[in-house]
């Protein structure tokens, strides 16, 4: 047996499975409700999307700590900033486009620059919002949020992780952008996980290529890993649930081992997670990198799965990109 075969055998692929598909926004709703029970400082605000954000359980149980602002997101962000004065921990909830682009200046001045302990919770992010189309498909939020000093940016991959992240950010003092989505997706991470802000999860070890994925793309990366395994390529699959601050050690450690990488995100390539990782690699460890994301276009109406395929946000495209980037090593 050659040394290479020996290493390959040691790198057995971990198999991830799931009992059911669940939406990440429901993970947020569950997490918020649990927080409400254990911490009276938690308050929540929503601008007319309580059901969509799954905040209704919190609203019903803690009406005195829930603020319906109506369709007035700018005001909601300001009120959230004000609520921190007096020690409250506000969670705002609306769609990702209304959580960022619509209120960028309010977040910038009243929350980020003022370093207020506001948790901006954004649902229906990305192209998987689906049928409502491009007006509602926010694909630029990582960029806008990561550029703001003081801001932490989090993008969990499934229901369980979104719930864990929601609970974890309450204990972190400072502004946080928490991004999640609309469709039901495989719920494969553990129910009792500990969510550590800024610590990437290595889901599968590999030696040939590093795949850095975030949000809904993490499952696609795992699926791609299976296909690559059959082709004899050992992919290291890493869940980058924290876009900012990036887990520099894990990312560089992996890329030094594998010699090339792919980034995969449901976001514009311009300004996305891939861009942050490319910046890191350029500075410390320049290796070939392929970026999977939206290529400077707006989305469109369609079913989430169809859109993922059309825009190249699927396992098959990750496999293609992997083969391409390995050939560049």
């Amino acid at each position: 047996m050659t040394i290479e075969n020996e290493i390959n055998n040691k790198l057995k692929m971990k198999k991830y499975s799931y009992k059911e598909k669940k939406d990440t926004r429901s993970g947020f709703g569950e997490g918020l409700f649990e927080l409400g029970n254990k911490n009276s400082k938690i308050v929540a605000l929503c601008s007319d999307l309580t059901g969509s954000l799954k905040m209704d359980k919190f609203q019903k149980q803690f009406p005195e700590r829930f603020y319906q602002t109506g369709i007035a997101e700018a005001n909601m962000m300001g009120i959230a900033a004000g609520l921190t004065i007096g020690g409250k921990i506000p969670f705002t909830g609306t769609f990702a486009n209304f959580s960022t682009g619509r209120v960028y200046d309010q977040i910038r001045q009243s929350i980020a620059y003022s370093n207020k302990n506001v948790k901006i919770c954004a649902s229906h992010a990305g192209i998987t919002l689906g049928e409502d189309g491009a007006t509602h498909q926010m694909l630029e939020d990582f960029g806008m949020m990561k550029m703001l000093p003081n801001m932490t940016v989090i993008s969990p991959c499934d229901f369980n992780q979104t719930k864990a992240a929601t609970i974890a950010i309450a204990d972190y003092k400072g502004p946080v952008y928490l991004r999640f989505g609309r469709p039901k997706v495989p719920n494969f991470t553990s129910e009792d996980q500990e969510f550590i802000i800024g610590k990437a999860d290595i889901l599968n070890e590999g030696k040939d290529i590093s795949v850095f994925a975030t949000g809904h793309m993490v499952w696609q990366a795992l699926e791609a890993g299976k296909i690559l395994f059959e082709k004899g390529i050992r992919a290291e699959i890493i869940n980058i649930h924290t876009i900012k601050p990036l887990d520099v050690d894990t990312i560089l450690g992996s890329i030094k081992k594998t010699g090339c990488g792919i980034t995969a995100e449901e976001h514009q390539i311009n300004g996305g997670m891939g861009e942050s990782i490319a910046q890191l690699l350029t500075k410390y460890c320049a290796k070939p990198l392929e970026m999977i994301g939206i290529k400077d276009v707006f989305g469109e109406s369609g079913k989430p799965d169809e859109l993922m395929v059309k825009y190249g946000l699927d396992a098959e495209n990750i496999v293609k990109a992997a083969q391409k980037v390995i050939s560049r090593k």
Binding site: M77, G78, G82, T84, I85, G86, G87, K88, Q106
Partner: peptide
């Protein structure tokens, strides 16, 4: 100073939030 201001139109919202916080704190 409890919040940055300069970009106009934001202060009243922040003040309302602080007022709500006072109510929750029975202040």
């Amino acid at each position: 100073v409890r919040v940055a201001s300069g970009s106009l139109g934001q202060g009243l919202s922040v003040a309302l939030g602080a007022a709500l916080s006072k109510k929750l704190n029975n202040d």
